[in-house]
Simulated scan of single mutants.
Amino acid sequence: MSNDKTKDPGEIDPNEAIADAWAAALEEQKEGGRPGTRSGTEEIRRMSPEDFTGTKPEPVSEVNLNMVLDVPVTISMEIGRTKIPIRNLLQLNQGSVVELDRLAGEPLDVLVNGTLIAHGEVVVVNEKFGIRLTDVISPSERVRKLR
């Protein structure tokens, strides 16, 4: 494929620029230089823990949580669970009763993205169901349950 355009004398051919860059890199390598260094005399210095003594993480009280305040999460209330074989699942229809692993009157679980964060009881507010939190699980207890 030929190009019939005449080249402007001041225009740099991109292929020539790339070739020149490769030639310079190869020449630097022959002289003993390492990639990313300006000369072959620079040495890599090993870091020790003492090199970081002046640096401190930001205190927790100063962390800006505004970035995560608008992140959506899924909150769900669970009244109980059960395991049944697929055969029984396929036989369910309107009016079927499924027995759960909870007793009547036991508190519901409040889950955020599938993680238990509280227990509560059902309430009715303006003819809508709601939940009154009766026990909030501490962050340290949540971490303990993850292990």
Rank of each mutant, 00 (worst) to 15 (best):
I84Y: 01
G114Y: 10
G36F: 12
F129D: 05
Q29D: 11
E121T: 04
E62A: 12
E58Q: 13
I75P: 04
A25T: 09
S61Q: 10
K128H: 10
T82M: 00
I75F: 07
I84K: 01
L69W: 11
T115Y: 10
G95P: 07
P72M: 00
A24R: 15
I79N: 10
K83N: 04
G54Y: 02
D70A: 13
V97D: 07
L108H: 02
S61C: 04
T53I: 14
E28H: 15
I86L: 01
E121M: 02
Q94V: 08
R87T: 07
A118N: 02
V71L: 05
V73N: 11
G120A: 04
E127P: 03
A118L: 02
A104Q: 06
S96L: 09
A21P: 00
K83P: 00
V125T: 15
N64T: 05
H119Q: 08
E78H: 12
D101F: 00
P59S: 09
E78F: 08
I75R: 07
A24I: 13
N126S: 13
L65I: 11
V112G: 10
T115I: 14
N88E: 06
I79T: 11
L108F: 11
E31K: 15
G130R: 08
E50Q: 14
E62C: 05
N66P: 00
P72F: 00
N113W: 12
L103C: 03
K128D: 06
K83T: 08
D101A: 00
D51T: 06
V125M: 15
I131H: 04
L100N: 05
R81V: 05
N93I: 05
V71S: 03
N66H: 02
A21I: 05
F129A: 09
L92M: 01
L69F: 08
I131V: 15
K56I: 03
R45D: 05
S39D: 09
E78M: 14
E99D: 08
V123M: 14
I86Y: 00
A25W: 07
M47W: 15
